[in-house]
Design a protein around this nucleic acid. Structure first.
Lengths: 169, 169
DNA sequence: GTCCAATATTTGGAGGTTAAAGGAAATTCT
DNA sequence: AGAATTTCCTTTAACCTCCAAATATTGGAC
């Protein structure tokens, strides 16, 4: 995966773009860089999670449940917090349920609602996986703390520009 | 998709993390931000491409072919340049071939090699889609040029830290 | 009381990604 | 030559994402 070639495909694409549409090359390079870095970091994180039988998506669902007081949340709320489509939540929870890390039950208050509840086994796996991820610095060990917080700030600016979150007060 | 709620799930997750594992919260937030921004930008780009019947993956394949002299490239080379798994290339090219935007033939020099060649129709679609993406600034219109280049530089630092590319000389 | 509209979740389908396995062709070794 | 290895590509199998179309339940209007 990590080719470490002396050749950078993104830099090459930027050259091509500059030669034809000079005013737009930087935007293209930025988008492509986001895609590439996401791919690299996801791959690293999933390597760390593999021993626990979790993908990043299922880890996030489990972690979210572990954070709540009662250890349970309606499916819809999970989709909001994880910022993914409801169908993705259904999918992830179904698999976790199959492994006994989560249970599902209809809400007594509103029987349209499905409550996902983390089990003791689920809490244990979540705790161990979290330790492993923290230990690995989520794959960002090679960066300085400043680089990490600068990157987060810039990404937050993009989220604001795109309307994902409100601008800072 | 763009909820624009007064509530930021990533900020909330960062709070939770800080309360338990203070030294690792920033890494977690950085990773999660990369994932989220990738999702947002991909969605915007694909909205722009939709009228042309292209996804971002297939657009990139088409654009890559259009950049070459003869308009053709071996499948393997495409995987390297696009930084994706060979199976992804097979997939993307199969679909493009079905639409008549690309043709496939065995290389006369080495019959293990499959050459993908862009057709005239393919060049036309690539040109139009590129115009649309440039016009939309790849979804980054709300950012200053400095923010765009800063983000790209920081993402390049991450790629270096992760071993994706060599450090600058 | 009924009926209709909104809400919550699941299902099915199209695409994308990777890993693993297999066939065919080229290359290398003996 | 002949055999073994390597390379290139495709296929299959998991998973993830989203969308669109059911289903079921609630709640409000009449």
């Amino acid at each position: 995966m990590a080719a470490n070639e002396p050749f950078d495909p993104i830099a090459e694409a930027h050259r091509q773009w500059s030669a034809r549409w000079p005013g737009h090359a930087d935007h293209m390079a930025a988008i492509t860089s986001v895609m590439r870095v996401q791919q690299l970091l996801l791959s690293r994180v999933e390597d760390t999670l593999k021993p626990y039988g979790l993908t990043f998506a299922s880890y996030e669902a489990l972690r979210l449940l572990a954070f709540t007081r009662r250890g349970s949340l309606p499916m819809g709320k999970m989709g909001e917090r994880l910022m993914v489509h409801p169908a993705s939540v259904t999918n992830a929870i179904r698999r976790l349920e199959g492994r006994g890390l989560v249970q599902r039950q209809l809400s007594p208050d509103d029987r349209r609602v499905v409550l996902a509840t983390i089990t003791d086994a689920g809490r244990e796996v979540a705790e161990e996986a979290t330790f492993a991820l923290n230990e690995a610095s989520f794959g960002l060990a090679g960066l300085t703390p400043e680089q990490v917080s600068d990157a987060t700030a810039l990404l937050r600016a993009i989220r604001v520009a795109v309307g994902d979150i409100a601008p800072p007060a």
